[in-house]
Design a protein around this nucleic acid. Structure first.
Lengths: 336, 336
DNA sequence: AATAGTAGCGAGAACGTTATCGAAACTAGA
DNA sequence: TCTAGTTTCGATAACGTTCTCGCTACTATT
């Protein structure tokens, strides 16, 4: 960037008017005649003028940028959420800065702490599996930084958040398994501490109780297909064995299917499996995976929408939004 | 952001010294005693000081930000590339701004044009399938904006770019099919105009010629599994039918497998299929998909590395880097 | 003891923009 | 013709940094 860019000073000199007038003409105008306005806009175009965001940000103390802090983007859910965020932000003329925490609490606090308050107008965050201390987020709130959480939300912080309806989704999933004739149902749960693993687990437990069924095991672990593989293997090494599995997400369910397939256990007929997410691979795997579809794109859009409302109006009230999920039936929960 | 943040003025007033000294003490120091430096750093920590990037950016005319312009992030390759970019950028204390073009040339030019030169130090781009006019990129180069392309690169612009070795990868893929005993090989190609579809297609053509084989059809279309589905269906409606397929990417290959499976054609035994990417679903689908693995993460890292070198040294020479690929053999190219 | 050199610091301009205040020029009312 | 009001604009001070000078006080050299 050695070449000097054209500034409003250059335009002012070119036209023989003051910088103040040029500045006024640029924005939605008052106090400036239609003619000079047109003149300014024309020469600005000719001189290829671009506003200097550092300068405007300095004086208005607001950059049109929002930060997104997220564990990863290499899976369907997160990448779709980000797509939703991005699209809404661009519509509203905000730019998004991306920070990957790699599901490490250390990186999360580091990133959030070093996130200079002056460089973004607000923050959209999805916490890691490990995060137990939220002081880095609380510091931001104390400095009046708008902050909204999505998907993985902390229990203790009072700010806006948007999630899918995890509890009802889990209820629907277990209900579906039961209605298909499965009765010995186990649950592949998510990592401890996360709100969504609690919700989905509780939905599972409550609908079992409602039908006077008992759980055939709950195993907590990470979100990967490898985790699902391991967990289903320990589940099937002990007696009595389950005849159905509700998995906290699709990736673990897919790991489970892979393991069962290798051990010649017929998925669907012998043991039913349902996941959560509606990852595209869930309809590619065979047998295809029944699942609870999450509105990932909408979660991205609405959380961004709420954040921008908070940014534009400090008094905007804290909101907790829960978006509906949808049952998608495929082969993995079908008997013959 | 109503609450006023602490500035170096506040620190200066607190300590009874000048802002200049505080500013010097903050950075890697010269002209400041060890004691005042320690003092400044201490009170800066106590007062929770964060540098104002707008101010530093304004005077140094450099934000520590880079922009990434990419068609989408909802697939394995792109999301992994971004992860690589992100990690290297964070190591070097750069922040990344994300712009999704949704594979639309209109959005690409819009985003790139409106990208204020003052808001980022450099640009990392992967063009859309549609892009034929590159003037929006050329304008940036004329303004001395560092710019490096990755994966999908334009043919006509003289700037740094990093790609995988598409040509050799395609050669290895077709070579593998031939060595497995397939001889009637078709190619599911990418969209016209893209450099990588040309390279992979040429690798396919050249190794066929080398073995005195003729092509059993080349069909150009998009990158989705739906495209693969459609193309393989038209391929198998006309005679003579191929006994193997080299697909420009894994998603199309997966679409092809799905179609063949539905039509009871044995993938592997009857017709061999090989893809390109090493998408995780390629080992989940059954039969599992042989493929050419792309170094997505490394492409992200090295393109970011080169961009930052360009940013830090205007005279850094233009580079064209080609990273090696790797053949991964699975079930889809195995005969009994 | 006189001079030169250096370490440490302060004053003030600059970066590009917006905001405040007031000045000119014009219009309208009497 | 004078006054009051309005429209359009210019000067100038901010915003929070960095950077260029230059000044002081101390150390080293002769």
């Amino acid at each position: 960037m050695t070449k000097r860019l054209t500034t409003i000073k250059d335009i002012a000199r070119e036209l023989g008017i003051s910088v103040a007038t040029v500045s006024r003409a640029m924005r939605d105008t008052y106090d400036v005649s239609a003619e000079t306005r047109r003149l300014v806009l024309d020469t600005a175009g000719k001189m290829n003028y671009r506003p200097n965001f550092n300068a405007t940000g300095l004086v208005k103390s607001g950059t049109h940028k929002i930060a997104v802090v997220i564990p990863a983007i290499t899976n369907y859910y997160f990448s779709t959420v980000i797509t939703g965020i991005q699209e809404y932000a661009l519509e509203k003329n905000y730019q998004v800065m991306l920070y990957l925490t790699n599901d490490s609490a250390y990186w999360e606090t580091k990133v959030v702490r070093e996130l200079s308050l002056s460089s973004v107008d607000g923050l959209l965050a999805c916490i890691t599996c490990e995060t137990v201390d939220f002081s880095h987020f609380e510091e931001l709130l104390e400095a009046d930084m708008p902050l909204v959480f999505f998907d993985r939300v902390p229990h203790s912080i009072k700010t806006s958040m948007v999630v899918q309806d995890d509890y009802t989704g889990a209820c629907v999933a277990t209900e579906h398994l039961i209605s298909q004739g499965y009765s010995k149902i186990a649950h592949l749960a998510g990592p401890y501490g996360l709100n969504l693993t609690q919700q989905r687990r509780q939905g599972y437990i409550d609908t079992l109780k409602k039908h006077n069924l008992e759980s055939y095991g709950i195993i907590h672990s990470g979100f990967s297909d490898e985790n699902g593989r391991e967990d289903v293997s320990t589940l099937f090494q002990s007696d009595p064995k389950p005849d159905a599995i509700f998995s906290v997400n699709d990736r673990k369910a897919i790991g489970a299917i892979l393991w069962l397939r290798e051990h010649h256990i017929a998925v669907g007929n012998e043991v039913g499996i349902i996941g959560f997410t509606n990852d595209p691979t869930s309809k590619i795997i065979s047998p295809s995976l029944s699942t609870i579809a999450e509105p990932a794109y909408e979660i991205g859009r609405t959380s961004c929408e709420i954040l921008i409302k908070h940014i534009q109006k400090q008094t905007y009230p804290t909101q907790e939004i829960s978006l509906p999920t949808e049952l998608i039936v495929r082969e993995s929960t079908r008997r013959e």
